[in-house]
């Protein structure tokens, strides 16, 4: 096996609706080395979220079916391991940061309650024990790591009392609770203002570097990819059309799809020609 922390080989996923079968992923190959920042970029319907769900083991079966392929995490086969082990990995070794900070927090519990609960169950899955007091200490510690100025106050707040950027940080803190090795971020910051988004991206980048994590960033925003990741996979219609280091791919895209995708992004310098994107779809 390769030295990758996560590797996906020739992954095929089908969705069955009524009597039709849709091939949603058609042979995805992906490698995430330890301590790397990898982006999976594509437009809606490209299959990036399905890939992420397959990795996390969140595909709703039997609606979705993995028909072929292999996935290894740290050398362990994700598809054949017992359910119990699989569940123990989720949220602990590999953690997710969700897209929308407005809807992924429960409005009727305080941040502290929600984070303590997550930690409690994560500990249980890993067979660790921690007292309630230790759990609180850990939660406050992680809130500090995401640069909250007053972790105690955030701990006691309800989600509605926090701004969008603060809520997004809480989601990042939640993902960090059990010291994962792999962080999977699904469109982080897209629901936020530009200045807040820039802060969140910088925070994620700093955290990933400080803690030696691997990051898989799932996004449709090419600018975000360029700012945060060192290697990119471009997806379209269920296949990876092109992959390469961020610098190379942005400087000299090889495939027509990638070229058109990059050309469609409006430039701050103002030379975008909107009429040139007919090649797509």
């Amino acid at each position: 096996m390769s030295s990758a922390l996560l590797s996906v080989r020739d992954l095929h996923v089908d969705f069955t609706t009524y009597n039709q079968t849709h091939k949603v992923l058609k042979g995805i190959n992906l490698d995430i080395p330890p301590h790397s920042q990898i982006a999976l970029v594509g437009e809606s319907g490209s299959g990036k979220t399905v890939t992420m769900k397959a990795i996390m083991g969140l595909l709703r079966q039997p609606l979705a079916r993995i028909t072929a392929g292999e996935m290894y995490y740290d050398g362990r086969d994700l598809l054949t391991m017992p359910d119990k082990e699989r569940v123990a990995l989720r949220g602990t070794a590999m953690s997710m940061i969700f897209q929308d900070p407005m809807t992924s927090l429960n409005p009727v519990f305080t941040i502290g309650d929600q984070m303590r609960t997550i930690l409690k169950y994560a500990d249980r899955r890993l067979g660790r024990t921690r007292s309630a007091r230790e759990r609180k200490v850990r939660v406050l510690e992680v809130l500090g790591q995401v640069r909250m100025r007053d972790p105690e106050r955030v701990f006691q707040s309800y989600p509605i009392m926090l701004s969008g950027g603060m809520r997004q940080r809480v989601l990042i803190a939640m993902a960090l609770l059990s010291e994962p090795k792999l962080l999977i971020a699904d469109e982080p910051g897209t629901a936020l203002d530009v200045t807040t988004q820039a802060q969140i991206l910088k925070l994620m980048k700093d955290l990933v570097e400080e803690r030696g994590l691997a990051l898989l960033m799932i996004t449709h925003n090419l600018g975000v990819v360029r700012e945060t990741c060192s290697y990119v996979y471009v997806m379209n219609k269920g296949v990876v059309v092109e992959h390469g280091s961020t610098a190379d791919l942005f400087a000299a895209p090889q495939e027509d799809y990638t070229k058109a995708l990059i050309a469609a992004v409006p430039r701050l310098t103002g030379e975008t020609r909107f009429g040139t994107v007919e090649a797509m779809r």
Binding site: G165, T195, A198, G223, R267, L268, T269
Partner: peptide, 28 residues
């Protein structure tokens, strides 16, 4: 600050983006 926060896709854009440290918190 707004311009410095825009994620960009090319080196030319990066060059014209003001280089200022990003601030913490919401709208400054």
């Amino acid at each position: 600050l707004l311009l410095a926060s825009v994620p960009v896709v090319s080196a030319e854009e990066e060059a014209m983006r003001p280089r200022i440290p990003l601030i913490d918190g919401e709208i400054p």
